[in-house]
């Protein structure tokens, strides 16, 4: 045994390294590397899906209701209802990966945004967030007081 170890010690070291790397690679309880790259659809808004989009109601889309939203798309045949605490469970991720695209629907834009980003960082790439599209529009007008510095 000693003789073998001495003769192939480099091979043993390589084997250990490979095993360590494989363990790290196969660990599921971690986020995907490259947070910036994972977040690109949020920066470009290409992760937003509106109900007027034909892809939204397509049979290949999976509608994911998060925390029982009021707005329902009952005409859709492919629906998954989950709690926000279950967004990263194995079954949820598997269901999303199986579908062509998944659309996250919730009543709270904050929750949809958080869920979308967490899934993106977990390595999901075929998911969208259902927004009306005007969430980040400024809805008021600021009137400066031009007398304040005279």
């Amino acid at each position: 045994m000693k003789e073998i170890l001495k003769k192939y010690k480099f091979l043993v070291v390589v084997l250990i390294l490979v095993v360590l790397v494989a363990i790290r690679f196969l660990l599921t309880d971690r986020f995907k590397q490259g947070a910036e790259k994972n977040a690109i659809p949020a920066f470009t808004h290409s992760n937003v899906m509106q109900s007027s989009n034909p892809k939204f109601m397509a049979a290949t889309s999976l509608i994911v209701y998060i925390d029982s939203p009021k707005q329902r798309f009952s005409a859709h045949s492919n629906i998954l209802a989950i709690n926000s605490s279950d967004i990263l469970t194995k079954s949820t991720l598997q269901a999303i990966k199986k579908s062509e695209r998944a659309i996250l629907v919730s009543d709270d834009p904050s929750l949809s945004a958080r869920c979308w980003m967490l899934m993106a960082q977990k390595g999901v790439t075929n998911h969208f967030a259902y927004f009306t599209g005007d969430e980040e529009d400024f809805k008021y007008q600021f009137q400066p007081d031009t007398n304040s510095y005279h």
Binding site: R30, F31, Q33, G34, E36, S85, I87
Partner: peptide, 23 residues
């Protein structure tokens, strides 16, 4: 091949912990 890229940002927190405060 499997180590994070140099200068690349990656999440440090565990998914379980992140899900806990999501709501």
């Amino acid at each position: 091949l499997f180590l994070p890229g140099i200068g690349e940002y990656s999440f440090q927190e565990k998914p379980g912990k992140m899900v806990q405060w999501i709501n």
